[in-house]
Design a protein around this nucleic acid. Structure first.
Lengths: 340, 340
DNA sequence: TTGAAAGCGCTAACAC
DNA sequence: GTGTTAGCGCTTTCAA
């Protein structure tokens, strides 16, 4: 492999010192009052020799990596990959890169990934956390390390965060289902179900029902393990259908669940919405195409990504330890389609 | 921010030298014959002090980053995000991380990303390239830099690559459409259309038709610009429908196009497959749910990811410059559904 | 078995 | 305006 050109090589070739060259390369030429002529010579030679700085040396010296970590449960979930794409674009404008990692909803793995990112001097982390007790996160917090929670937040602790108004989303679904005259309702959630996103959606839904004197039966809340969705969804649907109270409508708390519910209902020959209605949280492209098209709570994906980036960058700029964290809740929208 | 523990700190705390500690930490304790007792002491203290090596110092010294670059046109495309997820899992087993970048089908941006990854000493790159003339890639190649092409390959140059048998996929679609009695066929491709994946699919399709004495009209090949799919698809469909020869069936060369075609046909009130049949390359989850479910050529996504990782790792292990590159072509499968 | 010291490429304080 | 120099934290000869 042809050897890379170092700062020293460049300086030698120019008959100048490393310092000078380094300054020019970092755009501090004017500040330090280096003559235009010299600056030009340096820049040209650099291009000619194809010089690019060694990021390790730079990182070692400055303790900066120009890297941000993004930790999500599963990057192949379209909700997260869309956010990732937005963040990639936004960060690259500021010359930051994204190290993307999936936790598979494993809190232990999440902690390992956080440590890994810190070893690599990631300058900040954007995190859709699976933690129940965010002790690892609090450590970061106390170190004043830039961290922004997305999608999921924690009640007690105060972090920067960008989530949506999940409670309102749940309530909207409740209202709509009742308005449409559905009665025997079931909710499908996913484990670990303590995740704020899920509890909030469920709470909003329950509250919505309560306001209209309806109540959600405990047995109608189905918690599906993250890594066995298909089979477990089928099991629960069969259980719910075998009871005397005839199931009316299903509210799935994320897009994966909706897909599995849809498939299962088709498989066992139930019609949507005639036999059973379906509403889901998370609007993905497939819902618009599905048969029937799925009514869903849409989240402002772009804005989530953009806002998270803004928050990280602002922490990076102003190294103000005491700046209050800002939890942000973006509005959601119930997109009416045919499944309900 | 509480200061990180360095190797020196750890050595001092133990009353030993950096060398010794470094050796132990890197598992060379036995090799160098350091007493078990000492090794244990080191390891324990390291854990106690929460020591983790600074990756910059390490990288600077060793020229290694434990990072692999993944460059794709768009990480929010489910085809690529699924591959990314597989690769992430496989690489993390070997303690490699993935730096994921999207090119937006911009060849210039792709070159910049390649350079950026090399500045960061990415130890290899997995690339779904948008290049027409891979001169930047040839540079890497000549430097014996580990690079694996996925999804798209180049004819002349010889790189390691993992693609599917796109030609066969195209032929399968041709056979099937003709067998079903469709006559006036259109193909939707995407620009830049010189990409091997697209030309191969189209070539296979044309050959398949020719074998049965059919021919594809030039005007029935629609090239849609990457960043304006929705509008352009509608324009072309309207054009095709306004002609005297009534359009029978559409073959879309990737999943994005299929989605747009589906939406457009719905919008203008055409039934699938009664009015117009639709077959697509790339099977995504939405196709199974869509209304009607879309017949599509499915690619072995998992195997693509896994094989690309294997190839990179093998280049990394055996630093054998002369090992012949192995282009790999995985089989595809036509998944029959309702749209045709 | 263990330690001393060189040096990877860069930036920044301090001279000149 | 420009140059000298001291490390950042790590691995790796080489020596003891």
């Amino acid at each position: 492999m042809s050897k890379r050109v170092s700062l020293q090589d460049l300086a030698t070739a120019l008959g100048l010192s490393k310092t000078l060259v380094s300054m020019v390369m970092n755009g501090k030429g004017d500040e330090i009052k280096i003559s235009k002529v010299t600056q030009k010579r340096v820049l040209e030679k650099a291009k000619q020799l194809n010089y690019t700085p060694n990021q390790f040396a730079r990182g070692l010296r400055m303790g900066r990596s120009q890297t941000i970590g993004l930790i999500v449960p599963d990057i192949s979930n379209p909700f997260y990959s869309r956010i990732a794409r937005i963040m990639e674009d936004e960060f690259s404008k500021k010359n930051y890169r994204l190290l993307i990692c999936s936790t598979e909803e494993d809190a232990e793995k999440e902690n390992e990934l956080i440590r890994m990112l810190q070893d690599r001097a990631a300058e900040g982390i954007v995190l859709a956390s699976t933690q129940k007790n965010p002790k690892e996160l609090s450590r970061l917090k106390s170190d004043n390390y830039p961290i922004v929670l997305i999608d999921r937040e924690f009640s007690g602790e105060k972090f920067d965060s960008v989530c949506v108004d999940n409670r309102d989303g749940g309530a909207k679904v409740a209202d709509y289902l009742l308005k449409k005259g559905y009665n025997e309702l079931a909710v499908f959630t996913i484990s670990p179900s303590y995740i704020s996103t899920l509890t909030e959606r469920l709470a909003g839904f329950s509250e919505g029902l309560k306001k209209q004197n309806h109540k959600l039966n405990k047995e109608n809340i189905c918690e599906i393990p993250f890594n066995n969705v298909e089979a477990e969804v089928e099991k629960h649907i069969k259980r719910l259908l075998s009871r005397s109270n005839k199931l009316d409508a299903i509210f799935t708390l994320n897009n994966n669940l909706a897909v599995s519910v849809l498939k299962t209902l088709r498989k066992i020959g139930k019609r949507i919405p005639e036999d059973i209605a379906l509403v889901s949280f998370d609007d993905i492209a497939a819902f618009e195409l599905a048969c029937p098209a799925i009514t869903a709570v849409a989240q402002p994906v772009e804005e989530i990504g953009r806002s998270a980036v803004r928050k990280i960058l602002s922490r990076l700029d102003t190294n103000d330890a005491d700046k209050k964290p800002v939890p942000e809740h973006l509005p959601v929208e119930l997109v009416l389609r045919e499944s309900c």
